[in-house]
C-alpha cells in the first residue's frame, strides 16, 4: 500500500537480492575453476572461469557501490542502514578471498600435487557450502524468517571442519618431500582457502547478533 513512498528502499532490497544471486555465481565459477585447475593445471577452461569469476566479482562491487550511494541518500532508518552496511561489508570480503585464491593459482603458476587433491577438493566444497548456507541465512534475516541460529550452527560446523582439513593439509605439505619453495606457496594457498569459511562464519555470527538485536 505504501510502496510508492519507499521507492529507494525497494530498490535497495532488490539490489541486495541481485548481490546474493551474483554472489552465488561467483562461488560456483570459483569452484569450477579450482576443480578444473586440479584436473588440468593452467588449462584454457581455468583461465575462462577465472575471468568469469573476476567479472562477477566486479559486478558485485558495482552493486555494493549502488547500495552505498542509496544508503548515503538516507534510505532506511539509521539502525537498519548500519546493520545492512555492516552485513554487506562482511559478505563482500568473501569474493575477495576467492579472487585471491585464483590469482595465486594463475600467477604463481601453482600445480597442486595429486596427493593433496582430495583434501583441497573437500576444503573448497565445504567452504562453499558454508557460503551457500550464509546466503540463505542472509535472505532469512532480510525476510525476518526463523532459523537464523540453525544456519549459524551449520556454518560453524563447516568452519570447524575446514579448520581441521586446513591443519591436516599444512601438516601433510610439510612432511612431504616436495620443493620447500612450493611447500610455502601451497601453505599460503591453503591458508587463503581457509579464510573463506572463516569469513563466512564471522558474517554468520554477525547476522545472528543483528537478528537478535532487531527483536524488541
Amino acid at each position: 500500500m505504501f510502496k510508492f513512498f519507499f521507492k529507494k528502499e525497494n530498490k535497495v532490497e532488490e539490489l541486495i537480492y541481485n548481490y546474493l544471486e551474483n554472489f552465488q555465481l561467483i562461488y560456483e565459477n570459483f569452484e569450477e575453476a579450482v576443480f578444473s585447475c586440479i584436473k588440468k593445471p593452467h588449462c584454457k577452461e581455468f583461465n575462462f572461469l577465472k575471468e568469469q569469476t573476476d567479472k562477477y566479482e566486479s559486478k558485485a562491487d558495482d552493486i555494493i557501490d549502488e547500495i552505498n550511494n542509496l544508503m548515503y541518500g538516507k534510505v532506511l532508518i539509521p539502525d537498519s542502514r548500519e546493520d545492512i552496511m555492516k552485513l554487506l561489508h562482511g559478505l563482500d570480503k568473501i569474493p575477495g578471498y576467492l579472487e585471491i585464491v585464483l590469482f595465486m593459482i594463475k600467477y604463481q603458476k601453482l600445480v597442486i600435487p595429486e596427493k593433496f587433491f582430495k583434501d583441497i577438493q573437500d576444503l573448497i566444497k565445504i567452504s562453499l557450502e558454508a557460503c551457500e548456507t550464509l546466503s540463505k541465512q542472509v535472505v532469512g534475516f532480510i525476510k525476518k524468517e526463523t532459523g537464523t541460529r540453525a544456519f549459524m550452527n551449520t556454518i560453524d560446523k563447516h568452519e570447524s571442519h575446514c579448520d581441521y582439513i586446513e591443519k591436516r593439509l599444512i601438516q601433510k605439505i610439510f612432511t612431504s618431500n616436495i620443493d620447500p619453495f612450493v611447500k610455502l606457496q601451497l601453505k599460503e594457498l591453503i591458508i587463503c582457502m581457509g579464510d573463506i569459511s572463516d569469513q563466512a562464519d564471522r558474517v554468520s555470527k554477525m547476522v545472528n547478533i543483528l537478528s537478535m538485536k532487531r527483536r524488541v
Binding site: 519507499f6 525497494n10 532508518i77 532480510i142 525476518k144 532487531r214
Partner: peptide
C-alpha cells in the same frame, strides 16, 4: 521482513 518493518516504523 526487515524492509517492511522499517517502512512500518517510519
Amino acid at each position: 521482513g526487515l524492509f517492511g518493518s522499517d517502512q512500518l516504523l517510519k
